[in-house]
C-alpha cells in the first residue's frame, strides 16, 4: 500500500507551505493584511499536520518517496520586494498551496477506497481550508496584479 507515501508527501507539503507563509509574513510586513493572514494560515497548516497524526499512527508515514522527485517544491526561503515582487511571492505560495490541495484530494480518494471514516473526517476538515487558502491567494493576487503590472514603477 502506497498511502503512507502520500501521507508523507502531504505532511511535507503542508510543512513547506507553513514555512513559506511565515517567510512571506516576515518579508512583507508593510502589507499588513498579507502579514497577519499568512501567519494565521501558517497555523492552519500546522493544525493540518497535527490532524494527520492519528492517521499516520495507524498507516505509518514514508518520507522517502520511491518515485523520483521531478518538480522540486522546496518552499520559499527569501522574499522579493516591491509590488511585482509581492505578486510573484503570492504566486509561488499559490503553487505550493495547490500541491497541498491536490494531495489532500488524492488522500481523500484513498480514504474513500479504504472506507476509512476517521481519515475522511480529517480530509473533510482540512481540505476545505486548503481550498479557501487558494481562493484567498487568488483574490489577493487579482487585486494586486493591475496596479503592479500597469501603474507601479
Amino acid at each position: 500500500m502506497k498511502l503512507p507515501m502520500y501521507l508523507g508527501l502531504l505532511h511535507k507539503a503542508e510543512a513547506t507551505l507553513a514555512r513559506s507563509y511565515r517567510q512571506i509574513a516576515e518579508g512583507h510586513g508593510a502589507e499588513p493584511d498579507i502579514h497577519f493572514l499568512c501567519l494565521t494560515l501558517a497555523k492552519q497548516c500546522d493544525a493540518h499536520q497535527q490532524a494527520l497524526q492519528p492517521v499516520v499512527a495507524r498507516y505509518g508515514e514514508v518520507s522517502e518517496d520511491d518515485e523520483p522527485e521531478r518538480l522540486h517544491a522546496d518552499g520559499l526561503t527569501e522574499t522579493r520586494s516591491g509590488p511585482v515582487g509581492l505578486l510573484r511571492d503570492l504566486q509561488d505560495l499559490y503553487l505550493l498551496a495547490n500541491l497541498v490541495d491536490i494531495t489532500w484530494t488524492m488522500v481523500q480518494q484513498a480514504a474513500q477506497g479504504l472506507r476509512d471514516t476517521e481519515l475522511l473526517d480529517v480530509v473533510g476538515r482540512c481540505e476545505s481550508e486548503a481550498s479557501t487558502q487558494l481562493r484567498w491567494l487568488t483574490t489577493r493576487m487579482k487585486q494586486a496584479a493591475p496596479q503592479a503590472l500597469i501603474a507601479a514603477d
Partner: peptide, 20 residues
C-alpha cells in the same frame, strides 16, 4: 470590475509606493 474595489487603506499603500 476586474477585482475587488480598492479600499482606503490600500489606496494609501499604493500612494506610499508611488503607483498612485
Amino acid at each position: 470590475h476586474w477585482a475587488p474595489p480598492t479600499h482606503a487603506m490600500q489606496i494609501f499603500r499604493y500612494a506610499e509606493q508611488g503607483s498612485i
